[in-house]
């Protein structure tokens, strides 16, 4: 199976974020890491390749710093990488990001494309599904298991409230992968060494520009959310606090 994994570099979870001067994006001088669900998507692709053979290709878009995500993926076992390198890719909406990816891979023949189920920065949860529609492929989201069968694949979708569902689908297909589908591996020293010699194709903005259109949505402003709650602190010895809490539960929350 030939699998493409779409990966994204996002600010580290505990990184303090500052707004840029126009208040429309963050200042870029923060620490970055791979978007967590994308790491699981890569791991799943590597496991599928180990089972069925084939090739794992990783793709990302963003400025030079984003290459780190691809280097790590190559060190873990991906075979080659594609980097849509330009700062302008950061500001693309999901529709345009998917169009850029579709344009960059037009000469490849993949059986499967994986993305993480959503990104930790925008959190739109759309790029994978948009890409499927652009390619005319079927898709399934929030996937917890993938098995190859005669006619294609059987995937396990996570639904809400503890429900799951198996879905049979033909290939090629796009799947968005849920965190926790597998256990992540670490890159080995030899892997890191080999990664240096693996192919990494750079794609410029100009190469995919003709496939892009205007963004269909715009961040007008970005800001620190206001604290909307008036918190009432209950103080005193434990027994007294318990009494006060019970009183709130009875008279304010009305659950007693």
């Amino acid at each position: 199976m030939k699998i493409l994994v779409c990966m994204k570099q996002v600010p580290q979870k505990d990184a303090p974020l500052k707004l840029n001067e126009t208040g429309t994006w963050i200042r870029e001088d923060v620490s970055y890491e791979v978007n967590e669900p994308d790491a699981y998507a890569l791991e799943e692709a590597l496991r599928q390749k180990e089972k069925h053979g084939g090739e794992v290709v990783v793709i990302t878009s963003g400025p030079a710093r984003a290459q780190q995500v691809l280097r790590e993926a190559l060190a873990k076992g991906a075979d080659r990488a594609i980097h849509l390198e330009d700062n302008a890719f950061v500001g693309l909406d999901a529709f345009n990001t998917a169009r850029a990816f579709a344009a960059a891979i037009k000469d490849d023949q993949f059986d499967l494309i994986f993305t993480g189920l959503q990104s930790d920065d925008y959190g739109y949860a759309q790029t994978g599904v948009v890409l499927a529609e652009l390619l005319g492929w079927p898709h399934a989201t929030i996937i917890m298991q993938i098995e190859k069968n005669e006619s294609g694949i059987r995937v396990k979708r996570e639904l809400e409230a503890g429900y799951f569902q198996f879905v049979d689908m033909p290939l090629p297909a796009v799947l968005t992968i849920q965190s926790g589908i597998n256990k992540l591996r670490y890159a080995t020293l030899i892997g890191i060494k080999q990664a240096k010699n693996k192919p990494l194709r750079k794609v410029s903005l100009a190469e995919v520009q003709s496939a892009l259109g205007a963004n269909l949505q715009k961040i007008e402003r970005l800001y620190v959310p206001q604290k909307t709650k008036n918190t009432e602190f209950l103080e005193g010895p434990a027994g007294e606090v318990a009494k006060k809490l019970a009183e709130k539960l009875r008279n304010e929350v009305r659950v007693l």
């Binding site: 600010p11 974020l17 930790d120 961040i219 007008e220 402003r221 970005l222 800001y223």
Partner: peptide, 10 residues
């Protein structure tokens, strides 16, 4: 956005 650290008007 950013896991709730920031909000955006879109």
């Amino acid at each position: 956005m950013f896991q709730g650290k920031l909000a955006a008007d879109v």
